[in-house]
Design a protein around this nucleic acid. Structure first.
Lengths: 171, 171
DNA sequence: TCCTTATTGCAACTGGTTTCCATTACCAAC
DNA sequence: GTTGGTAATGGAAACCAGTTGCAATAAGGA
């Protein structure tokens, strides 16, 4: 068990350092949390994490998660996912360098992408405003190829219907 | 009272149409809500709105607000303000057609902008993915000119410190 | 090993939001 | 103007994610 190399090894060290600097302790529970967080390459909620840990047989309480995730955020290992209706969602930072999303209003699928043109345009804007960007998030809502071919009518949905349609997604 | 021209006249008509299309009714309460929402050109919370109405002597219940604001969102007249920690905030849309945001992690100020290069790049991506975009949202978090000049250290803040700084803003 | 202090789990609590249900208002047909 | 069907409303209760208090436990330096 100790011999297996985990994706969590690096974050573990980072976090240990962070804790030490604040006079906090690296506990078993914290190790377990980090392992889980870095094992999964996806957004997660407090509850997702809780359930995943339970399924593994770990019995940490939710309180412990609620107390420790903010520390992980502070340490820079994870971040809250900003944006409408992604409240309470987290993602880890390491090995998840950057991505934006296309979100289908019909099937809910999220397509990740990156685009250098986009980044360039953003840099321009920031420069123009004397703004030092640290992190950004772009979401484009619409209809994916699959859904469009199934239901061509949605191809030219007006803006208002978009707002209405997106409602479905509010948790 | 009837003769006074309100900024809310146009949204009122839009909303009336929206309601009609769904077999819903334009009530006194709904009129009052719209008037208030379009009188104030700023983000507001459910509670802000409630208090403002009470101060005016209107006695709608919170329940009514909680039931009607989602309708206003659906109708496209207002929207939820996206972004970390602006959960539960709304803004009206009219005269506010499209904008993305630069959000300062230090002072919380939001700078609105639009950029055609950005839109073009987005269109490209969508085309590449066979995705029909309907609506998008971009937020860039970082440090604004004002805060940077006050505290030059943040100019090249690493990702971790940025996340840490943003924590302060969690209500 | 001991001792101090951080950490944890449970349960109680909080604040924002939603639901339930009885009452009231709207509005179209008579 | 009256009536009847249906939507809208208010207040209280329920709900839920997240937080806090407190007693028991565990970490880790002396």
């Amino acid at each position: 068990m100790n011999s297996k190399k985990h994706a969590a090894d690096e974050p573990l060290i980072t976090f240990a350092r962070f804790l030490e600097a604040r006079g906090l302790r690296m506990t078993r529970d914290r190790r377990v949390i980090i392992e889980q967080v870095f094992e999964v390459h996806a957004h997660f909620t407090m509850d997702d994490l809780f359930v995943a840990l339970r399924l593994k047989g770990e019995r940490l309480s939710k309180t412990t998660l609620y107390r420790n995730l903010p520390l992980l955020v502070e340490s820079g290992l994870i971040r809250r996912v900003p944006g409408e209706s992604s409240d309470g969602r987290f993602e880890h930072v390491l090995g998840h360098p950057h991505h934006d999303h296309l979100i289908c209003l019909e099937c809910g699928r999220e397509i990740e992408f990156t685009c250098t043109d986009l980044e360039a345009a953003q840099d321009n804007i920031c420069r123009r405003h004397g703004f030092h960007p640290v992190w950004h998030r772009l979401g484009i809502w619409g209809y994916c190829r699959r859904c469009r071919s199934r239901r061509p009518a949605t191809q030219s949905a007006p803006a208002t219907s978009c707002v209405a349609a997106s409602r479905k997604k509010e948790r």
